[in-house]
Design a protein around this nucleic acid. Structure first.
Lengths: 123, 123
DNA sequence: CAGTCATATTCCCGGCTGGTTATATGCCTC
DNA sequence: GAGGCATATAACCAGCCGGGAATATGACTG
């Protein structure tokens, strides 16, 4: 009997995350997913089953193929859970940025150009 | 030997999520966490170990107590992974909102609510 | 209808996980 | 330093999980 899993546990599995990321680009048949992930076909089917039962994918039958497409809504649970934490780390990043800004104003030896990606949002 | 886990697998466990949520409010000693979650002390300690090794919490020694506090940064991995999906569902929600707006404008009689939970796939 | 293609399901297995009980460690108090 | 707290670690166990091989199912093709 199929246990109903939360989005959290479902995306804990790296291959399942890979499938979702793959479906982000476009819908795919099982065979296509199989070739992309380099896993055995039964393994793929099992992961797809878990994803389907969690509502994260949906399948359409097309001749002998089954074409899977993404249904991102259940991920909202995850996103919601993250909200309060997000506030915290953006605070930290801001503090870091202020610190770096101060550093940059100091007439010290030239530091190499900063490359890092910037993080979103601010109060 | 302690396996180094990704934030994804670490927060798959409900009790660990509960601990993080608890620490959101303020730092706590092990005993406080234990009483809040109603789990055995060794179990709590194990979860704290996993969280610590994943960099999600940090502990300070205070006499016989160990006080744990949150370190939210590793959750950024999760947040980053969500970005492209977030775009998708906000699109869907927008569509739903537009739909509801149109409905609100229609001067029709309220239709009886459809009850059956539709399951995926068919044709 | 036989054969083949695409996918799902079943069965089995080793490894990991989370829980418990028992024990070790470390600090504080008297 | 003996005893008591607070926490960590060890040892053990049942259940689950993800993997593969074999098999079932169902559709299309001749």
């Amino acid at each position: 009997m199929p246990r109903v899993e939360s989005a959290f546990t479902v995306i804990a599995e790296p291959n399942r995350r890979a499938i979702l990321t793959l479906l982000l680009e476009s819908e795919r048949s099982v065979g296509e997913i199989e070739r992309a992930l380099r896993l055995s076909q039964p393994s793929i089917s099992k992961h797809l089953r878990v994803l389907r039962e969690a509502g994260l994918v949906e399948s359409r039958i097309e001749a002998q193929r089954r074409v899977y497409r993404l249904r991102p809504e259940p991920l909202m649970e995850l996103d919601d859970w993250l909200i309060p934490f997000r506030r915290l780390w953006s605070k930290h990043v801001d503090a870091l940025e202020r610190h770096l800004d101060r550093m940059a104003k100091q007439p010290v030896a030239p530091s190499p150009a900063p490359k890092g990606k910037k993080r979103h949002e601010k109060p």
